[in-house]
C-alpha cells in the first residue's frame, strides 16, 4: 500500500495496464508530453513511449471516432476528454456509434473504449468546466457509466472499466483529485491520512455495478456519487442522524440490491447529485426505490441536487448541494 491522491492512483492504474496489456493506448488533448492538464497521465509517455501515450488534434469527435475504430480492431483505447463539458462534440460517436455497435452488428463487433473525463464543480469553472453530465450517458443503452470518488475506488474502478469489453464513460470528480471535498470551500484537506488514500501499487479491480457502503446507520439511506459522497458525509454528520451512506460508484449498471436492502432497513431515502434535478440519475433511482420499497418507506424520497440551470461561476457555492441542504433533507425524512 502507498498513500496516493486520486491523480496518482489513476496514473497508477493506467501504468499497470500499459505494463500488462500491449493493446492499451492512451490519448487525448495534452495527455502526452505534458501528462494532462490535471497531470493524470504524467510520466506515462516518457515511460511507455509516444506510440502508446500521445497527444491528439483538438477534436473530441475525432478522438472518440479513432477510439471506436481502434477498439473495433483489437486495441483497448483509453481516451481522455479534457473536461466532461467538452464531451459533446463526441456525443454522436459515443451515443450513436459506440453504444450500439455490439447490438447493431448482431454481436459480431464490439469496441472496448474507456472514456476518462474530469467532471463536476467546485473549481470556479463556470458554465463549461463544471458540469456533471452523467445522466446524458445513463440514458444511453450500451454504455456503462462509472463515477469514482476517492483514490482507492478510482484505481480499482478504472482498471475494471478498461478491462471491460463494453464502452465505459468514466467520470472523475476533479474537485477531489487532490483531496476530499466536504462542501466548505475554505476547508481544503488533502487525501493524506484518509482511509481511502491507501492504494496498492499493483493491479486490483473493483467490479462495475457494485456500490460501496461507506457509513452505516439505521435511520436513513443517503446515496451519492463523485464529490457529493464527501459532501453527503458532512451533511449526515451535521444532521446528527444515523444514516447509511452509499457511494454508488457505478451508475450503469447500478447496485440496486444494495440500495433496496438499505432502504428496507431505514425506511427513508435521500439521493444527492450535483447535476441538475430534472431527468438526473436521481430520478431513475427514486422511481426504482419507490417500485421496490413502497411498503417500507416511512417518508417521501428526497432529492438534493444542482438546480435546473447552467452552472454559475461567482455563485457556485449556492449551486452545489451543500451539507446544510443535505442535513435538512435528512431531517425532513425523519418527520412523521
Amino acid at each position: 500500500m502507498t498513500e496516493m491522491n486520486m491523480i496518482q492512483s489513476l496514473n497508477s492504474a493506467l501504468d499497470n495496464l500499459l505494463e500488462s496489456d500491449p493493446n492499451v493506448l492512451i490519448f487525448g488533448e495534452d495527455v502526452g508530453y505534458f501528462g494532462g492538464v490535471f497531470r493524470v497521465t504524467d510520466g506515462l509517455q516518457e515511460k511507455h513511449g509516444s506510440k502508446r501515450v500521445f497527444d491528439t488534434p483538438l477534436a473530441e469527435g475525432g478522438i472518440a471516432a479513432i477510439a471506436f475504430g481502434m477498439g473495433l480492431n483489437g486495441l483497448r483505447p483509453v481516451m481522455e476528454i479534457q473536461f466532461a463539458d467538452y464531451i459533446f462534440p463526441a456525443y454522436d460517436q459515443i451515443v450513436n456509434e459506440m453504444a450500439k455497435l455490439r447490438h447493431r452488428s448482431g454481436g459480431e463487433f464490439s469496441t472496448p473504449v474507456t472514456i476518462r473525463t474530469p467532471a463536476g464543480g467546485g473549481i470556479k469553472g463556470g458554465h463549461h468546466h463544471s458540469q456533471s453530465p452523467e445522466s446524458q450517458f445513463t440514458h444511453t443503452p450500451g454504455i456503462k457509466v462509472v463515477y469514482c470518488s476517492n483514490p482507492y475506488n478510482a484505481k480499482g474502478l478504472l482498471i475494471s472499466a478498461i478491462e471491460c469489453n463494453d464502452p465505459v464513460v468514466f467520470f472523475e470528480p476533479k474537485r477531489c483529485y487532490r483531496g476530499p471535498f466536504y462542501g466548505d470551500p475554505h476547508n481544503v484537506p488533502t487525501w493524506k491520512g484518509h482511509e481511502y488514500s491507501e492504494v496498492p501499487e499493483e493491479h486490483y479491480s473493483i467490479p462495475l455495478g457494485e456500490a460501496n457502503l461507506t457509513m452505516e446507520g439505521d435511520k436513513c439511506t443517503v446515496i451519492a456519487w463523485g464529490a457529493m459522497v464527501h459532501v453527503a458525509e458532512q451533511g449526515i454528520k451535521d444532521s446528527g442522524i444515523s444514516c447509511d451512506l452509499i457511494d454508488l460508484q457505478s451508475l450503469v449498471p447500478w447496485d440496486r440490491d444494495a440500495v433496496v436492502n438499505s432502504v428496507k432497513k431505514t425506511g427513508r431515502c435521500v439521493i444527492v447529485h450535483e447535476a441538475p434535478k430534472t431527468s438526473g440519475f436521481g430520478a431513475e433511482m427514486s422511481a426504482s426505490v419507490q417500485e421496490r420499497c413502497f411498503y417500507h418507506l416511512e417518508s417521501p424520497i428526497e432529492r438534493v441536487t444542482g438546480w435546473d440551470t447552467p452552472f454559475p461561476h461567482s455563485t457556485e457555492w449556492d449551486y452545489l448541494p451543500s451539507p446544510q441542504r443535505i442535513a435538512e433533507a435528512i431531517k425532513r425524512t425523519q418527520e412523521d
Partner: peptide, 20 residues
C-alpha cells in the same frame, strides 16, 4: 455566470465568448 475573460459586449457588436 461565466469565467473571467468570457466577455459579452453587445453595444460593441462583440458576441459572448464561450469556452467550448
Amino acid at each position: 455566470r461565466q469565467m473571467p475573460v468570457h466577455y459579452t459586449y453587445k453595444d460593441g457588436h462583440y458576441i459572448s465568448v464561450s469556452s467550448p
